[in-house]
Amino acid sequence: MEGLLRELAPQVLGRLIRRYHQFDTAEDAVQDALIKAVTIWPEQGVPDNPAAWLYTVASNRLIDVVRSEAARRSREEEYVRDDPAAVEGVNEAAANQDDTLDLLFLCCHDALTASSQIALTLRAVGGLTTGEIALPTSCRNRLWLNASAGRSKPSKRSARRSDGSLPHRGRSVPMP
């Protein structure tokens, strides 16, 4: 049965994408259909046309998700129409606030080691990837990682060291 599902999954995914033009939602729907097949088929047997069964289940799931999202958007729009002043105040405050300084302070928190502070700052504030941080510079020195350390270990160590959160302005802020 596993081989059959592996063979049919790309076919069903391709049909859904062709019909609905939503890759990510179609992929999730196919995964849900595969899970349903794995739980139902051992008890009830494999259907006569397993590809059609998977396509129908995945298509129904995709339609449910699309309808749910449309209903959610409709409720949000209705809320905005009913009380636009409340939403405008929130949007204006959020639009006028620059959180870069807060992010910089979080990246340079005392609970982190110096190398972790540098790595997080270069990633979060500077926009560099972990690989870019570790690439050799023109002087053939690494920015701060040594060659034996894994490329993503410093960020993970930083998060572990701070137990997943840092105190910030009287509240706990989860680490990335």
Rank of each mutant, 00 (worst) to 15 (best):
L16F: 01
N49A: 04
G127Y: 02
I40D: 13
E132S: 07
W144M: 13
A37D: 05
W144D: 07
A71F: 13
R140I: 05
H21R: 03
R157N: 11
A33K: 05
I133R: 08
A124G: 07
R19C: 01
L101A: 14
T100P: 00
D83T: 08
R73V: 07
H109D: 07
Q44T: 15
A94T: 13
A9I: 00
R157S: 08
L103V: 11
A70R: 12
R61S: 15
E69L: 07
V12T: 14
A149N: 03
R72T: 07
A111P: 00
A86N: 14
I40E: 15
A70I: 14
A111V: 06
A26N: 00
R18L: 10
R81F: 06
D102P: 01
A29L: 02
K153P: 00
A70D: 11
R140M: 10
S116Y: 06
E92Q: 02
S115D: 08
A9V: 00
Y55A: 08
V87K: 10
I40G: 03
P10H: 07
A29P: 10
S165W: 14
G89N: 10
I118C: 06
T113C: 01
R61D: 15
D83P: 03
E77V: 14
V38P: 03
N146Q: 09
N60M: 15
Q117F: 05
G89T: 11
H168A: 04
F23K: 15
A58S: 03
S138A: 13
V65I: 10
C108R: 04
D110P: 10
L4C: 02
L54V: 00
A159S: 07
F105Q: 11
P42Y: 04
V65D: 09
E77K: 15
D83M: 07
A134I: 12
P42N: 10
S116T: 06
L112K: 01
D48I: 03
V80M: 12
E77D: 14
F105L: 13
R15I: 09
D82A: 15
V66P: 05
T121P: 04
L106D: 04
T39Q: 14
N60Q: 15
N91H: 02
V87N: 10
M175Y: 05
A147G: 13
T130K: 08
G170H: 10
S165C: 04
C108S: 02
A33E: 09
I40V: 11
K36H: 10
V46F: 06
S172P: 03
R67E: 09
L103N: 08
A26L: 06
D24M: 03
G127K: 01
H109M: 03
A85H: 15
E2M: 09
N91I: 15
V12E: 01
Q11P: 05
